[in-house]
């Protein structure tokens, strides 16, 4: 389990990194924390001619507030996000999501941009980013663009990023008054990838839900909006109500969850309703 050989550069500026990626073409790969990439390389499931390490680029690090948005450098470590004061205040569910990621040793190295760009269907950050209406700023030598998280994830391990593009920052609208968020997931062991998980954001007015984002993960190729549940919540269906349960069931029935050594497809299908219900209840409680 030793990786195949590759060349390695660790530029200290984003421009240099983008140039290296552009020059390297399909053979070059950006590496951030490497917590998902390195195992794939160890199994030789992934082989690259060149790794471009983003870990030494200062402008990709850190959390800042920019108007109504929180701007998180793509190479910010997950552990830093978990204990960041701005995140705790303005995007608390992102900190909560971080707690579900692997273990401390992983979070100390893994980054938010790396996790989002890796697009593991069972990972927490992609669904959280979609639930929070985040935008991913990406860059290449061809220029910069911003991709709404909802348009980033195409399929398992597949994003709409071009090979020469890297994520620069994740922009998250700051939590608004009356908003409530929560994340809940079920895994075989603490720190394992979710068998099914759900991130919920509700907007309330006068204590009543007026809008909702319900994002399931681990049950399909990409984070999946449970649209019927969102509509039911926006229409005033409460936790435990027949309407919400029926809507969740309808959403669940539209899924074709994956099957693997950890759980059957039927199992993932079965627990989605419970997982979503739990997260919805917590999000509503959080909004009060």
């Amino acid at each position: 389990m030793k990786p195949a050989a590759f060349d390695y550069v660790a530029p200290t500026s984003l421009d240099a990194a983008l140039t290296a990626l552009a020059d390297g073409g399909y053979d070059a790969k950006p590496i951030a924390g490497g917590q998902s990439l390195v195992p794939l390389m160890a199994f030789r499931l992934a082989v690259f001619g060149q790794l471009v390490d983003l870990g030494r680029i200062e402008e990709l690090q850190g959390v800042a507030r920019d108007g109504d948005e929180l701007v998180i450098g793509a190479a910010t470590r997950q552990a830093a996000i978990a204990k960041d004061a701005l995140v705790a205040e303005h995007a608390p569910v992102l900190a909560q999501a971080t707690g579900w990621i692997g273990h401390q040793q992983i979070r100390n190295r893994g980054t938010i941009g790396g996790s989002i760009c890796h697009a593991d269907p069972a990972a927490e950050y992609p669904a959280t980013a979609v639930a929070l209406d985040a935008t991913i700023d990406v860059a290449s030598t061809r220029g910069r663009r911003s991709i709404p998280a909802a348009e980033l994830f195409e399929a398992a391990y597949t994003t709409t990023l071009e090979p020469d593009e890297v994520a620069v920052a994740v922009r998250i609208p700051v939590r608004r008054p009356g908003e409530g968020t929560a994340i809940f997931e079920v895994a075989r062991r603490p720190g394992d990838f979710a068998l099914a998980g759900c991130v919920v954001r509700v907007a309330t007015s006068g204590g009543a839900v007026i809008d909702a984002r319900v994002l399931a993960f681990g049950v399909g190729g990409a984070p999946i909006r449970l649209a019927a549940a969102e509509a039911a919540l926006a229409a005033g269906a409460g936790v435990g109500s027949q309407e919400l349960t029926a809507a969740l069931q309808a959403d669940a029935d539209g899924l074709t969850p994956p099957e693997d050594a950890q759980a059957t497809s039927a199992y993932r299908h079965s627990i989605v309703v419970h997982v979503a219900n739990t997260a919805i209840a917590e999000a509503i409680a959080d909004s009060q």
Binding site: P39, F43, R188, R189, P190, D192, F193, D260, A261, Q262
Partner: peptide, 28 residues
């Protein structure tokens, strides 16, 4: 509760790394 190396019908073992072969950890 956890540990299992299932095989598919073609004789491929399906849990040959520690992501798929689950060992007990302290929390459990």
């Amino acid at each position: 509760l956890l540990e299992h190396i299932p095989y598919d019908a073609d004789g491929n073992p399906l849990a040959v790394n520690f992501k798929d072969y689950l060992l007990p950890v302290a929390d459990l």
